[in-house]
């Protein structure tokens, strides 16, 4: 049992625990916090997979930006939540059916992947990982990179327009 394997087991356990907690907790804020564990352990997994840069980005974007944004969203939309309010939708049958379908889907995919092994290993990925990414991104993937920046810009503008209070014109509901 190598150290890498132990590390993987621990990270995977934390990630899945975070997901399961997200499903089972009752308070919205707690759910988001639970997911932060998952996101961070996924970052750890990236390190195991020789993707240090992606791991850092993961921590920055997900654990930092997205989570904080979601918490802000929750706070801004907070209303008087009563104790014991339902956190899920649909009746028992619908949830059961969805669970069964998800489970069946998981089994089917599991059957497809659990023996998958190509036998190769990108052994050089961790050497100057950031440099490799930078080289690829600014040479081979320039155009997608630019397009991604355009998407971010559009998202920025769109988000501002959507979230802006439209007092003028439309009557207040």
């Amino acid at each position: 049992m190598s150290g890498e394997y132990l590390a993987f087991l621990a990270l995977a356990l934390v990630a899945i625990t975070g997901g399961v907690l997200m499903l089972n907790l009752t308070k919205v804020v707690h759910m988001v916090i639970a997911l932060v564990f998952t996101f961070i352990s996924i970052a750890g997994l990236y390190v195991l997979l020789s993707a240090e840069f992606v791991a850092v980005v993961q921590v920055l974007i997900y654990s930092g930006a997205v989570t904080i944004m979601m918490l802000f969203g929750i706070m801004l939309t907070r209303h008087q939540e009563e104790e014991g309010e339902k956190t899920t939708t649909g009746g028992f049958w619908r949830k059961a059916l969805t669970a069964i379908a998800v489970f069946a889907f998981g089994i089917a995919v599991y059957l497809g992947v659990y023996r998958l092994d190509f036998g190769e290993e990108g052994a050089r990925l961790h050497e100057n990982n950031t440099e490799q990414i930078g080289m690829a991104l600014y040479s081979h993937y320039t155009i997608p990179f630019e397009i991604a920046s355009v998407i971010l810009l559009v998202a920025l503008v769109g988000a501002i327009i959507l979230a802006k209070k439209d007092d003028e014109g439309a009557p207040k509901s």
């Binding site: 995977a12 990630a15 899945i16 997901g19 499903l23 759910m31 988001v32 899920t88 949830k95 998800v102």
Partner: peptide
Amino acid sequence: VLALILFCIGLYGALTKRNTVIVLI
């Protein structure tokens, strides 16, 4: 398999959670 499990958790949550923020997350 780990990714599959997380995906399934996310999917189940997206399909059943009541709070829209949680669905997004």
